[in-house]
């Protein structure tokens, strides 16, 4: 913070420029020094993120043999991709998955505020309990859930049989499989959202609650009018992270359904579609085009969220 006060003081009084311009002026004056400090970070990003993205973009316009040797084919990969029904089914599956996992956020808000109640005993213990699934390995999580979901011998169908429901083959019936994967996804990402939201709750000044209580607000009213509005920045952050990671759904699907599952073609996510083309069928140019489409979709969705956030996120 000292930095920004120094900078403000050095700006001549007549420079009544808007804040943004002032930042730009400061950057120009500082020369290359700031760049030197971020160089280690930037070079990492450049080598491991930006360069591969550029490479992928290039290869998406080529036909790439199994052992390299890319030949330029123009937009052939993209015309083929947009005519491929598999793309739309994978997109639909990914959206369905994302929508279900997003349902975890309201639940996380509610649970986090319950855990934040003053005087709650064993709060840390509960927090650990909810967070455990997030740190568990997706493969290990999937192995356990496979046993739960098993159609003939699974725990879930056994429990359902007590209430007279003949449960389906959760992970091998096209309509159900995506729900099964999404429920596990929700369950395992829930802990992360809850911790972030819990930290956000700690930042809400207790005076606001005291004032609300003096004004006679009920607990529900306090939750709705104090907690939720002041928590919107954390909710926004959690939403962005959840959506991006949902769009990258791969390992959970792969481990839960199994690579030989006959319904896999109907239950692919976008990234699985990419994997199957690039690493199973060895069609790497086509896979690069899929990767670019995923990249652009995530970019657009994230941009949209930043646009829309002004309407509901309370940044004061």
């Amino acid at each position: 913070m000292t930095n920004s006060t120094t900078r403000t003081r050095l700006v001549p009084p007549n420079a009544a420029a808007p804040r943004v311009r002032r930042g730009g002026a400061a950057a120009r004056r500082d020369g290359f020094w700031p760049w030197l400090f971020v160089l280690p970070l930037l070079s990492g990003i450049g080598v491991f993120y930006l360069w591969p993205i550029a490479q992928t973009a290039y290869f998406s316009f080529t036909e790439w043999g199994v052992f390299g040797g890319a030949t330029w084919t123009g937009i052939a990969n993209y015309t083929r991709l947009f005519a491929d029904p598999q793309l739309y089914s994978a997109l639909g599956n990914t959206l369905l998955y994302t929508a279900i996992v997003l349902l975890g956020i309201p639940i996380a808000v509610y649970i986090a505020s319950l855990l934040n109640m003053p005087g709650l005993r064993f709060a840390s213990f509960y927090r650990v309990l909810f967070f455990l699934p997030y740190v568990a390995m997706p493969t290990a999580v999937a192995m356990v859930w496979r046993i739960i979901f098993n159609g003939d011998f699974g725990i879930l169908n056994y429990v359902l049989s007590f209430v007279g429901i003949d449960g389906p083959y959760w992970t091998s019936t096209p309509g159900f499989a995506m729900f099964a994967v999404a429920i596990v996804g929700l369950w395992s990402s829930f802990g992360f959202s809850m911790i972030i939201l819990g930290a956000g709750l700690k930042n809400i000044p207790p005076e606001l609650y005291e004032a609300a209580e003096l004004d006679g607000a009920t607990p529900w009213r306090r939750f709705r009018s104090v907690t939720v509005p002041l928590l919107t920045p954390s909710i926004f952050f959690v939403m962005i992270i959840t959506i991006i990671s949902s769009f990258q759904l791969f390992d959970l699907l792969y481990a839960l359904l199994g690579s030989t599952n006959p319904i896999l073609p109907k239950s692919m996510s976008l990234v699985y579609f990419f994997y199957s083309q690039g690493f199973v069928s060895n069609d790497k140019g086509y896979a690069a085009a899929i990767a670019m489409v995923i990249f652009v979709i995530i970019g657009i969705v994230t941009l949209l969220q930043f646009r829309l956030q002004k309407r509901w996120v309370n940044n004061d």
Partner: peptide, 8 residues
């Protein structure tokens, strides 16, 4: 069935 053989 195929489903039974997939699950187990």
């Amino acid at each position: 069935t195929i489903q039974q053989l997939t699950d187990t």
